[in-house]
């Protein structure tokens, strides 16, 4: 029983990190109607950046984010300007291919620089743990969860308490109307893409500290993130939060009560079930006719 409780707590804590990564993905989708397949590769890139800062410069993991977050934000804006903005027609479909290509390039660069050896971020947070009741919990899980909570909270404030956030939500609701009332949708899109990528970097730090990774890990990661946002309903931030928590709890509990090899299959089965019952996902809106 305590094993199951342990699995649920670990699931909640890691679920927060996945919610962070998925929120970047679903935010970009909501504003621009594109799916950033490179999100997984960008998470892995963020993990490698944190790894290098920690290993080479002995920078504290959370302090390192002060460097990696702005850097990844700028990278996101550059990717948007160079590769997403030029797509004029059939943008939704072509953007999937373009971002897949970006993912491959990132994987290729990481493979050349770091080779395919398995890495994991080392730090006092990872090795030290504390005791709650009967079981031990590594600090990184708690701090990773807190980081996610803080960043998601900041994202909420940005979206609902600032003028930029108003413009962003207006662009999500209706792109053309937002343009008509004088919102610079192009700039909003660029910043949103940057924010999405920066969230991936933050998630990457927490992911890299709790999981071993290689450059090719992004395939597995993006499949989970996509499953989360489809389960949630595309473009729904609150749904992404619920879905990420649900996925990680289901996985961890399955690993304990059944077998670790089947843990992610169970979530995919749930995904198929929800698509049969509700094709638009948990909190998604039914897709209308878009021209």
């Amino acid at each position: 029983m305590s094993l199951i409780l342990d699995a649920v707590i670990t699931g909640i804590l890691t679920g927060g990190v996945y919610a962070l990564m998925a929120s970047g993905l679903t935010l970009v989708f909501g504003v621009m109607d594109i799916i950033n397949i490179a999100q997984g590769a960008l998470v892995i890139l963020g993990a490698y950046l944190s790894f290098v800062l920690q290993q080479q410069f002995h920078l504290d993991l959370f302090l390192g984010l002060v460097i990696t977050l702005p850097a990844m934000f700028i990278l996101g804006v550059i990717i948007y300007v160079l590769f997403i903005r030029p797509l004029k027609h059939d943008r939704t479909m072509l953007s999937i291919l373009v971002t897949f290509a970006i993912a491959l390039i990132i994987e290729g660069v990481l493979t050349i620089v770091f080779h395919t050896n398995t890495r994991q971020i080392q730090s006092p947070y990872v090795t030290q743990s504390f005791q709650i009741g009967d079981f031990y919990l590594s600090y990184i899980y708690v701090f990773g969860f807190l980081l996610s909570a803080v960043l998601l909270g900041a994202l909420y404030l940005l979206l609902y308490r600032t003028k930029f956030g108003q413009g962003l939500r207006a662009s999500m609701q209706n792109r053309t109307a937002a343009e008509l009332i004088g919102i610079n949708v192009d700039r909003v899109s660029a910043y949103t893409f940057g924010i999405g990528v920066a969230l991936a970097a933050a998630g990457g730090m927490a992911f890299g500290a709790t999981t071993a990774f290689v450059p090719g890990s992004h395939y597995d990661l993006i499949s989970r993130l996509l499953a989360i946002i489809v389960f949630a309903g595309m473009g729904s931030l609150g749904g992404a939060l619920i879905a990420a928590e649900a996925m990680l709890i289901v996985e961890n509990v399955t690993a304990v009560v059944w077998s670790p090899v089947w843990s992610s299959t169970v979530f995919f089965v749930l995904l198929v079930a929800i698509l049969i019952l509700r094709p638009q996902g948990l909190l998604g809106k039914l897709e209308g006719r878009k021209q």
């Binding site: 059939d90 373009v98 491959l104 390039i105 290729g108 493979t111 080779h115």
Partner: peptide, 23 residues
């Protein structure tokens, strides 16, 4: 060399060129 990294970059770059320039 590079564990297939160069090949992935070529593939990705080719993909970008095709989609952006020859849609």
């Amino acid at each position: 060399q590079g564990g297939g990294g160069v090949y992935l970059i070529i593939y990705g770059a080719l993909f970008l060129v095709v989609v952006l320039l020859l849609p």
